[in-house]
Nucleic acid binder design. Structure first.
Lengths: 212, 212
DNA sequence: GCAAGAAGTAACTAACTGGTGCGCTACTGA
DNA sequence: TCAGTAGCGCACCAGTTAGTTACTTCTTGC
């Protein structure tokens, strides 16, 4: 049982840290690592710039923290899907829907990942925590595939990593390139009908890929 | 033995312009719009910074030019595929292989497109030339689909734009996110065997999607 | 109640960055 | 031949940027 809440302190290290992190996430997502400004992050966090250096060390380290947290967030959300409680087909469809919805609801995630890769992944290299979370995720998908094969609904021999990449790709690409896509293909990528069509198309793509 | 070539002119506007454009493409691709440095571009182009402002107006305009040229290049290469000379299945497989190979051989293209979208496509907005090139491309794919349906090998009702997006996505995503992918999934994304597997997987994905 | 450390602030700096003013030089057309 | 122009280079600027120094203020354990 939570005792007293804790009275509104004028100083609150963890709250300040969290505000900085949120502001940084938003700014790095909006402008990239090079484009984001430390002063602006501090301003938006209603914190003094000095605090960024105090809590995170520097701009690059702040970016690293933001990035790792963003990845841990999605991995954690994936675990909550509880795919093992569903029949294989439904489980897979649920994963496709989730991946799509997550990118839609967390547009910063996409641009952060893009920035991370622009910098050749160097901000992610050390994180064992992330690697093990990813391992869990792959096993989860592997398990769905195995059950599907056992039930005779999925064809055997599908690599869960390739499948994951494809599921992410068909949603992620559409959303990250929505601006150039809208211009080049002269259609609105983001109205609700377009979004619905794309999701349907993606579910269809994945199902045709795995069904036996 | 070097033949005449064209005598080494001390001044060559179009050559200088081209060197700047090439250096800019490389730098913008490597570091993004905000990360690239005008001084560095000039240095790598063996040109004076002043020339960048003379030929292109400014950093943003230079980026716009680089971006439009990059898009025109891929659209032009797509037209050279001559898909209409091939049976529908072969035509489509050829397109998938081409898209993959193009991203592999022109890694700058991917990061330039990412940068363009980070800036919400604003550098592409005016280019009618690009829109019409894209229109031609979509018709080309539409025509392949139509022939496939007529031949009874493809199922009807497939949207060529959605198909294009998917073909691009499954290659592009793998390559643009190869750094984080390599780390998270603990496998080398770029050795020749991995690349071959991915291409096979992608061809399979697209074929299963369209075959009747 | 008080010392000590943690949270927070403001002003500063050294280096950098996009962009220019201006003059020099080679080519070209009449 | 020679004036005009386009290509080019130097040196500079004003604004910005990541990071720091030196300080004050609050909180907490004892």
């Amino acid at each position: 049982m939570r005792v007293v809440e804790e009275q509104p302190r004028t100083r609150d290290a963890s709250a300040t840290r969290a505000r900085i992190l949120a502001a940084a996430k938003s700014e790095f997502a909006r402008l990239g690592l090079a484009g984001a400004r430390v002063d602006e992050i501090a301003k938006r966090a209603c914190a003094n710039k000095r605090m960024i250096y105090h809590y995170f060390g520097g701009k690059e380290d702040l970016f690293r923290t933001v990035l790792v947290e963003a990845y841990l967030d999605i991995r954690s959300a994936e675990q909550d899907l509880e795919l093992d409680h569903l029949p294989p087909r439904e489980a897979l469809e649920r994963l496709v829907r989730f991946t799509w919805a997550y990118c839609l609801d967390n547009p910063e995630f996409i641009t952060l990942v893009n920035s991370a890769n622009l910098h050749r992944g160097k901000h992610l290299k050390e994180s064992e925590r992330l690697r093990s979370a990813s391992r869990r995720f792959v096993s989860m998908v592997q398990e769905v595939l195995d059950r599907g094969v056992a039930d005779g609904v999925f064809r055997p021999g599908i690599d869960p990593v390739q499948l994951n990449i494809t599921i992410a790709a068909i949603g992620y690409y559409y959303l990250t390139n929505r601006f150039t896509g809208t211009i080049l293909f002269e259609r609105d990528f983001m109205n609700s009908k377009a979004l619905e069509s794309r999701l349907d198309f993606n579910i269809d793509t994945v199902m045709r890929l795995v069904l036996s």
